[in-house]
Amino acid sequence: MRLVVTDLAADRGSGPIFEDVSFTLAGGEGLLVTGPNGAGKSTLIRAIAGLLRPSAGQAVVEGGDSDFPGVSDDYPEVGAAAHYLGPFNAMKPTLTVAENLAFWQKLAGGTMALTIDEGLEYVGLTHTRDLPFSYLSTGQRRRIAIARLVLNCRPIWLLDEPTSGLDAASEREFASLVREHLDYGGIVVAATHLPLPVEGMKRLEFAGAAS
């Protein structure tokens, strides 16, 4: 399977944010989008996910021919094939960690990769299982949001500043998680201004902020 982005452009009323972004990622390939604040990295991720209507161009998933577990041949849109890890964690402060994760796992549907407990073990936060989400520290919250990625099989990961708030050790763990996902035949698009130490990822550099 492939993620094909052709001539993508986004416009937020005050002029174009980026134009003519084209790339193709096959299974096992990742793309690191870097650039200063305000360069349009998040906007690119949102446009690929389908959360923002691009002013030109398109992003599509070409299905078929993949070893990735639970992948279907035909996706109507990128959002259906992708996990989107945005700047917010999308967890409810009053619910427990397990309740939050169970809800998203159920909503995402498809093939379950890991159970909640296995997912928590993955990010090393098993002891927080029954704590309300609001009790967690910033880094722990981020790790719980990352745990969601491994609960359901989705071939494409769209990551927007995935490592914000993480300490150095967790950052390395996250990098190895991304590596593992790529090895399975997944696709990763990550927007970040922090270096993400994953080898073999392509790079897309956004120049200075659009003024």
């Binding site: 389908g50 959360l51 959002g79 945005g86 999308a90 967890m91 409810k92």
Partner: peptide, 16 residues
Amino acid sequence: REDGSLDRMILHDHEH
């Protein structure tokens, strides 16, 4: 919307 859940619900439009 504030905590990002809405974005994910919109992305799950396909299943739900």
